[in-house]
Design a protein around this nucleic acid. Structure first.
Lengths: 223, 223
DNA sequence: AAATATTTTTAGACTTATCTAAAAAATTAT
DNA sequence: ATAATTTTTTAGATAAGTCTAAAAATATTT
């Protein structure tokens, strides 16, 4: 069977994929609707269509999950999205908060040769500008051993490796606060009152709110 | 007024633009239908819509032409198409007969920063891989002083600068015959019988049919 | 376990872009 | 200048994706 999916269908698969990854159980209609900024009734219609194409497993009222084929397609779209993000930042002078919208369009361009050619041109990058791993041509991900910064304890050291929220507002905040991927940090203090954290980043002491710390991924240094 | 056109609408504008350029008069419904491989009735519907948006001038039964805005959009899409073709050939190892289909998708991605960034990344190329001029960011074209190879007379010398037909089949023929853009040629003989031409290309004598010579653009050497 | 609230699905409508078949206009031929 | 042909438009239908409002199923309270 040949799969020439519409952009809309691809976006549904992507949404289901990423919601499934965090929930690890069938995804509800409402969650998908919220993610795609549409109505639950529209989601039900589309899910039925995807189920017919055997891209999702669907039981009425019980949510959806991806079939193997559906997952492969979703991962491939994510691969394209992230490769384009790398291209935009590295070669076209985009800031990391500007790439998402454009990558949302580029990810739907269909050409194996384009995707794999871009991958090679970029020298097979393993992470996108937000620290998310890029699936290889067979759809294999690097499974990262990461945690969220807010879960660190006092005196623990780690490296910032990614962002959970990649909204433009959050990324701009990080730029202004000079918090970049790859930098080493140490937790100096945790405030019980509001769960804010005092960090040591490159010699500087910085206080960040829980809002921030819970949206930063870190990789703990082996001690 | 904001212009967020669908890919389909953009394709109509492109088709009308290029048909108008050769005919230099309002374009007929049938011609557009043929170009876009659709039906005349569909074209009528779409034209009405574009006329309402003031992108085309339309008089029933008399054909369509582009308004200034419509032309600007068409040229901008062509700009994107050709820039992407350059990128694909130069950086991703595409052959010149492979780029069209992918560029047809990439040309609809909407981001000023992307287009202008790509232009700069490519160092502001003036021609695409088929020899077609690339409009600059303001939509200005280089007007080339070119003729079609078949119109040359015996002993005239010129340089091959572009192709009229950019179908994969034609481009592959040129590759096999070692006819590349930029090479100098001389007309040795014209056969009255079938209008074939005997050319001198880089020391080699090559005979080409009218089919071929009428699809190659040349720039005549000043003598 | 009933009652209430929430979530999900269905039914019917709307939009965009397309099609076929028939009608209307324009063009060409006689 | 009338007839025949071709082109273009209209009318009505279809498919994809969306929506609102109502109905059905599930989940939560009491």
């Amino acid at each position: 069977m040949k799969f020439d999916l519409s952009q809309t269908e691809e976006n549904y698969l992507k949404a289901i994929y990423s919601l499934f990854v965090v929930a690890n159980k069938p995804v509800s209609t409402n969650k998908i609707a919220e993610r795609l900024e549409t109505k639950a009734s529209s989601v039900t219609d589309m899910i039925k269509k995807l189920a017919e194409k055997q891209l999702v497993d669907y039981v009425k009222y019980q949510g959806v999950s991806l079939t193997v084929t559906g997952k492969d397609i979703a991962v491939h779209v994510i691969r394209k999205h992230r490769l384009w993000e790398v291209f935009l930042v590295r070669h076209l002078g985009f800031q990391w908060d500007e790439v998402h919208e454009v990558a949302e369009q580029l990810e739907h361009v269909k050409s194996r040769k384009l995707t794999d050619g871009l991958d090679a041109f970029l020298d097979f990058p393993r992470y996108d500008p937000h620290g998310d791993p890029i699936p290889d041509k067979d759809g294999n991900f690097i499974k990262r051993n990461i945690t969220v910064l807010s879960s660190l304890k006092i005196n623990e050291e780690s490296k910032i490796v990614g962002v959970k929220d990649s909204s433009s507002a959050f990324l701009k905040y990080l730029d202004n606060a000079d918090i970049k991927l790859g930098v080493e940090i140490k937790v100096l203090h945790k405030e019980d009152f509001d769960n804010s954290m005092l960090l040591l980043i490159e010699g500087q002491k910085i206080s960040i709110s829980q809002q921030i710390s819970s949206n930063l991924y870190v990789k703990q240094n082996k001690n």
